[in-house]
Design a protein around this nucleic acid. Sequence first.
DNA 1: GATGAATGAGCTTTCATTCAT
DNA 2: TATGAATGAAAGCTCATTCAT
Lengths: 207, 207, 207, 207
Amino acid sequence: MTNKEPKLTKKQIAILEAATDLFAEKGYAGTSTSEIANKAEVAEGTIFKHFKSKKGLLLAIVSPMMVKLVAPMIKNDLNKVLDQEYEYIQDFIRAMIENRKEYIQNNLPMLKILVQEIPFHPELKEQFIEYIGKDIFDRLKEIIKYYQDKGQLVDMKAEVIMRTVATSILSYIVARYVFLPEANWDEEEVETERIIQILESGVIQKK
Amino acid sequence: MTNKEPKLTKKQIAILEAATDLFAEKGYAGTSTSEIANKAEVAEGTIFKHFKSKKGLLLAIVSPMMVKLVAPMIKNDLNKVLDQEYEYIQDFIRAMIENRKEYIQNNLPMLKILVQEIPFHPELKEQFIEYIGKDIFDRLKEIIKYYQDKGQLVDMKAEVIMRTVATSILSYIVARYVFLPEANWDEEEVETERIIQILESGVIQKK
Amino acid sequence: MTNKEPKLTKKQIAILEAATDLFAEKGYAGTSTSEIANKAEVAEGTIFKHFKSKKGLLLAIVSPMMVKLVAPMIKNDLNKVLDQEYEYIQDFIRAMIENRKEYIQNNLPMLKILVQEIPFHPELKEQFIEYIGKDIFDRLKEIIKYYQDKGQLVDMKAEVIMRTVATSILSYIVARYVFLPEANWDEEEVETERIIQILESGVIQKK
Amino acid sequence: MTNKEPKLTKKQIAILEAATDLFAEKGYAGTSTSEIANKAEVAEGTIFKHFKSKKGLLLAIVSPMMVKLVAPMIKNDLNKVLDQEYEYIQDFIRAMIENRKEYIQNNLPMLKILVQEIPFHPELKEQFIEYIGKDIFDRLKEIIKYYQDKGQLVDMKAEVIMRTVATSILSYIVARYVFLPEANWDEEEVETERIIQILESGVIQKK
DNA sequence: GATGAATGAGCTTTCATTCAT
DNA sequence: TATGAATGAAAGCTCATTCAT
């Protein structure tokens, strides 16, 4: 069994970490390669030796994340649904959140970069669409259809449901880590259940 | 009746429009003042005569938007609620959306800039907090409490409800205009009702 | 009897005063015309209406000073010496200092500008040489010769004597006003006599 | 034996020399960094890599000079006086002039810059005061007192004597190199003795 | 005469990238 | 592989000067 990830030297890791922090903090365009070299304690030239260009560095940060977040969907999630491992959509959503929670929490700066830079970099958008669009989108549609057929999801367009679920999750992360990192927050443990509860019944009591 | 807005010359408007488009398209840090001058068909010096610095230009674009979106909340919305103009929270939300819809649709690039640049500019964040934080936050809490007492809102923390409602609206706008402007979209007219419906009952059918 | 000085409007005076202060404080090249306009409370255009260019403004400040300091030498000083009004060179020097003292003290910034800017502006140097060189230099030589013949001045080259006397005076002014304006200084009244005394006997007691 | 001076690369030296010439000729504010880069035959960026800013370049030129001129005073001059190496003040002055003559003649542009720019740069003034003020001033006072007690100096305030001696020397240099570099000058060798002679007996024969 | 908006050349400085060591 | 000196294009910004009002 071979290791698919290319071996990264200490310097490469230092560069990636420094760049991740700085891109997240000041944005890609607002960060200079000399700052990165400084923070990573390497020479400026070293960055270009390893990543060819500044944009190459950005892609080296962001691409693996897309893979990590999206790949298990193809490999596992759909199959588990079809195997009836998740009888209720709640279980499916809960599993999706829980499976990614740790990785996301450990890699929030990367996610921040991804979200912030996608609008400005066609390459990123293409990658994103390639990863999400090609397979995932269709698979998620299947899953949604599956639960709609079981009567567990309202009869709305798959896109709307997907967006609602996605932003329910993302809005928490964005609010939590991007906009108001210093605000006072509840215990994070109950957050998953709250998201599910809101997806179940909204926030408005029916008239 | 005097005009409270400072009179803007043709060149100033041209600069603001060019900058708005470019900042929205390429980001603040990714746009150069010479590009702006070029697009606005003015000399580069003119930009600095009027707006002092590149950041001054950003603030001149974004600040008025915050005022426009937030001011009516203080002046009108709360009072109308207290005057029982909106018996149901649905009516209140619908009114808030409808009142801002046109302005937002006409000023989407500004909103895009605001959302994208807030994380990178402490001044912007401060302004945002100043406008939102001081008054609005408390007023919205009152409104939420009002409808909770009437049994129309679930008994969650006001912050959670606020965030859910806000992102339900924003997520539509962001998805619609920022991330996937070229995607195929439904008639926008039904969107308001869909948002309200989701806030009412979520997307999951109760078990 | 006509007034030879061109009538200056209020604005012109304001500009000259502002420019004098700023040139003295920050140097000619270090001062911008907009700063001058600001301080003088006139529009930038007004400066150029009256003085044609920034350099024209400099000349308008400095030229009259040269005339004021140098003209009386030609008109009065030499004649008075020839008329034997000053029997002793001490009296001549004392008179020269006293005659110019007030004007210099009232116009120190101008003098500072003159001294500081002469090396950088050929026009200034030319003017200076024209005023000093053509007539004054020869006349001062005559005066020096006159007192040397009377045995009141050492038998050194006129240039050396001139320089010694000039710098004895100037060094006091420069030290006093340019380099150490905030230092603690004696009563200025005795300064003239001290300069004369040093010119008489140096500071070293003969072996 | 180690070299205490930081090693300067060829380019750094080229930049310093070009800047020294240009600052001396046209003043600090009147010289552009692109002119300097041009004359030094380096890229403009190189200047800023090495000296951080234009002002940094000025300080890199001027600071070492202050040290070079002033340091030997603390280390040598006072001790030599106390060791009675100079019986007469004339010997002391002569030694001071001779010790610095070569360095000054080789670095006249630097001196010109120092004298011209001190009034406009607080940092320079502070450095100057720090170097001169702290130790030198007191030591010179001691020396003056020493020779006054021996009856070799007139009984004037130390400041006046210091200023007289200093300007006697400086006035020669300034007149010689700054104001009238193209004038015809005597052999420089006798100049030292002339300065001493003037300090001994002034230029005026006692009545 | 007086204004100040407008200019565009030129300023200091930063930047991503290269390359000899 | 790693360096960091060097680059020069381009950045943000300032400037003296002009001109329509």
